[in-house]
Write a protein that binds this DNA or RNA. Structure first.
Lengths: 200, 200
DNA sequence: GCTGATTGCGCAATGG
DNA sequence: CCCATTGCGCAATCAG
């Protein structure tokens, strides 16, 4: 249990669907706590990274109750050098960006829009599903290994048995062959070699 | 290629190590772009989520060049109801938080501290390593399956062979048994079956 | 108690 | 356009 007890302090994101609603709403209803959050947040803000590590973006949804909600949302995922995704673009840039249509793409999408949230939510579901599937497959593969190992043992056992059977039969055959020889030429010399003819 | 080309617009996080340095620095050097970022950001901020979805935190490192760097960092991972991690705590809360020691824990750690960044960086490495390992293992398992399947085929083939051999030998044995019988009791009825008893 | 290893999760890019 | 997959970072938890 307690899979994803999050930090609240840094997000308390409650998505569009307000999953796990209850508590979230309760929390939001409590303005005092919000103040607290802001305060502590600020205290944190005071500090500045010596070498400035990240540049992000924050959305301060002005008022929702009177609480100044800080939407933030940095994710700070990759940090690879970004070519130039800046859509607003040419404004101050040195390069003359071709006046192509930048209407939809390159525009990072309003992070507050319902559409965005819907997209995210759906993707999150998809991701979860995909991961579940992946995990399932891995498990199946593992199971398959065990299955195959068992099968292998069975087969090896069978081979062992067959080999033994074959061996016995060969011996018998040889013996009888001798017997036959004896019967065919009873007048020959020694018959004593009969007994130790087990070697095939 | 382009594994993690990030959005820049929302982060351009460049970690403590400034991996993939080049571009990042370039970007930062260009103040105009920064302005752009801020502007667009603001425009985004204007909007307010109808049902207010997230509460996060942002770090505005005051000045790094004259650019107001927004550190942010929401991550917005879980959104589960958070008990009450608020460290500053009891101030406005309804519940009387036990005055336990909240010195180290519950305090979300200064997100700007070098220590924090180091921890994060290390963890990121560990995560990457772990995932690589995991992937490797999965691949190995898959390979093992194929290996076992091959082995199985081999074994089955062998069984087939042995079975056939056994069958032949049995037949031979039976035939010889007949021969024996014939030889032991040559006075019996038909010996015509002799002719096809050429086996060995 | 700390550190690395795992794990669940969300975000964004990309593939189909 | 949507879903699926994948790489990645964050945070919680496990394990040594």
């Amino acid at each position: 249990m307690f899979e994803g007890k999050e930090n609240l302090f840094f997000q308390a994101q409650m998505g569009s669907t307000l999953r796990g609603s209850g508590t979230c709403e309760d929390f939001l209803a409590d303005q005092t706590i919000d103040h607290l959050v802001l305060i502590s947040t600020c205290s944190v803000l005071t500090r500045e990274r010596a070498q400035m590590s990240k540049v992000s973006q924050q959305n301060t949804t002005p008022s929702v109750n009177g609480i100044s909600v800080i939407h933030t949302q940095a994710h700070a995922s990759g940090l690879q050098q970004v070519p130039q995704l800046v859509p607003a673009g040419p404004g101050g840039g040195g390069k003359a960006v071709p006046p192509s249509k930048q209407s939809k793409k390159s525009l990072p999408m309003d992070r507050n829009s319902d559409e965005y949230r819907q997209r995210r939510e759906r993707n999150n579901m998809a991701v979860k599903k995909s991961r579940l599937k992946s995990k399932q497959k891995a498990q199946d593969t593992l199971q398959r290994v065990n299955q195959l190992k068992e099968e292998n043992e069975r087969l090896e056992a069978k081979i062992k048995l067959l080999t033994k059977e074959l061996s016995v039969l060969k011996d018998l055959f040889l013996e009888h062959a001798h017997n036959l020889a004896d019967n065919v030429q009873p007048s020959s010399t020694e018959n004593t070699t009969d007994s130790d003819n087990a070697g095939q």
